[in-house]
Design a protein around this nucleic acid. Structure first.
Lengths: 341, 341
DNA sequence: TTGAAAGCGGTACCAA
DNA sequence: TTGGTACCGCTTTCAA
């Protein structure tokens, strides 16, 4: 590492002790204005920055938090959450250490260990599994806030999303447009997020006396292809529903692609609702009606909770749950009189 | 911050000095095997992790690097680069501090300052401007490696991408398919990346005796909409070219959308080449032929350079330039005999 | 108004 | 084989 100026060096130049310099730079009341000015000028010229590692060591505090995610980008939305986390943390003078686990338990654990070693005050972790015992071991007494779809809602600290409510919201919107034949397209294998959506959907349908229609593709992940395949299966199976709710925007884009290739118009022939509100800018000619996941709020809440834990506040809200909200665009409309079949 | 076990605490339990404990945990040759085992067991039970801040302070070394980008996601591709940086750094036992500047010079500078204060050994910065004096001031003697489209190629340390070569590659591919009327669709305002693509394109065309045809939309950024608008302008202007090279995959997707809405087929009626190779999975029914930007290599190279700088190697390769490579998919084909008009 | 001493958690050096 | 001492850069306390 390259050498950086220290208090002692400034003191040597100013003819003062490093203590006096420290005080001067922090505007202590017991240093003369003249000295302060002189010291600050020298510090400026040398480009002095305090060594926070040393300060934190003495003060037994920290100025960084950690965040570990399966991957940035790649349809995960953690990039968007991170942007918020970064902003909120910077606002409080905190740096964020970030690690991509590449969906490996070992890397996940290694990142946690390294960050704890590097004195992060708290960790925000989106694990790639539900069993997070390896993470807890790695973090020891450093508090961990869990986010992401695999999170056990019973975790002591967690920022969650209520995908159960998404089902009710989506069905309510479509039902208000007169739809009764509504299918939910999801992907597998099952996980907490998908199950919540399916359950919320089924309950919302049944509450209205409608028959829940759920099609889960074998696709392991959230892709456009999964949406296209789901529609192909639907078409092969018989009469189409009049509306689709897709478990993700990616699937919705794929479903719309497939429907349009068959000459169906959206929302004229069939309505489509997505989930996440991530990528609607990719289909500006469509304008996907979708459920907006509040990434901004999630990021902010995670940082706020981290700060409460770091400062060991008395009143801590250890878990927070956000609900996706409906964003109506142009992919949903009134039910067509004569359904396709 | 919560309390974490220290060498001294372990020593108290083991009836040893903290010095002996330190040695035992690091397998020093002058500690008896029995003592080592005993100490390690206690450390394990307490969940001891060394305080790297303290170690680094004494050893005058570091175990983290910094990275500052305009934003994660949002079509920037920095998410993909970060994934590589994270992996390469973790491999060497380094943490990565990441900051989103949200395209603000002030935040950019603040992140650099905070990271330098937190003792990162080097910084990888994708600035949102070409004038990076504020960053250099903030970083002082900490080395900065610049990446991203705004980077001045004369920067002492930089990982660059040769977009000039992209023009030659794109034109060579299209010319080999018989295309002579080729238009480049770019967006503005002009920046180094765009200028390089335009220049490379123009030279490649002229070298083949073809007339360069460049359409730069007023759009400020890289969006699907920019591609759609560009095609509209083209259509309004008169006969279409037989092939399009788009400055980004997003624009290419937009251009293809607009062309298909007009009933044109790709590549039957018109060939389209993109740039970046980011999002082709969004159009699985098309398969965009594009120029692959080697994000993986860029991330790895940036970390490698950071390490060389941290360890002040004698032999340093201060600048590295990568060339995008052609990925042929299904959006390009032989020129159509009778061009549209 | 200034500075000497102590200590944060760790490691190197040298004496016991 | 073990531990005392000093020191990394910083801040707090207390004495000058």
């Amino acid at each position: 590492m390259t050498e950086r100026p220290t208090l002692k060096q400034i003191g040597r130049i100013a003819g003062l002790s490093h203590v006096a310099v420290s005080k001067a730079l922090r505007d202590a009341p017991d240093i003369s204005a003249a000295t302060k000015e002189r010291v600050k000028k020298i510090a400026d010229e040398l480009g002095y920055t305090p060594n926070l590692a040393a300060r934190n060591l003495y003060l037994r505090c920290t100025s960084s938090i950690g965040m570990v995610v399966p991957a940035m980008g790649e349809n995960t939305a953690y990039d968007l959450i991170f942007n918020e986390v970064s902003a909120a943390a910077a606002d409080l003078g905190f740096c964020v250490m970030l690690g991509s686990s590449h969906r490996s338990l070992q890397l996940e654990e290694q990142h946690c260990r390294m960050m704890v070693g590097n004195q992060v005050g708290a960790l925000i972790v989106a694990s790639c599994t539900s069993d997070v015992s390896h993470i807890k071991t790695a973090c020891g007494s450093t508090p961990v806030i869990f986010i992401g779809g695999k999170t056990d809602p019973e975790e002591p600290y967690a920022i969650l999303c209520d995908y159960h409510s998404s089902g009710e919201t989506a069905v309510a919107h479509l039902a208000s447009l007169g739809h009764r034949d509504i299918a939910l397209l999801t992907y597998g294998p099952e996980n907490r997020t998908i199950l919540q959506k399916e359950e919320g959907f089924a309950q919302a349908m049944e509450r209205r006396g409608l028959i829940p229609w759920i099609l889960r593709t074998g696709h392991a992940s959230n892709t456009v292809q999964a949406g296209m395949d789901a529609v192909e299966i639907l078409l092969a199976d018989g009469p189409l529903p009049t509306a689709l709710w897709c478990a993700s925007d990616y699937m919705a884009v794929g479903a719309m692609n497939a429907l349009k290739l068959r000459g169906l118009s959206i929302p004229g022939d069939i309505s489509v609702v997505g989930h996440d509100d991530l990528y609607f800018d990719l289909c500006p000619d469509i304008g996907l009606t979708t459920l907006h996941t509040p990434m901004t709020e999630i990021g902010k809440a995670a940082v706020a909770l981290a700060m409460d834990l770091i400062h060991s506040k008395e009143q801590i809200q250890p878990r927070q749950v956000f609900r996706p909200s409906l964003v109506v665009r142009n992919s949903t409309g009134p039910v067509r009189e004569q359904p396709y079949g």
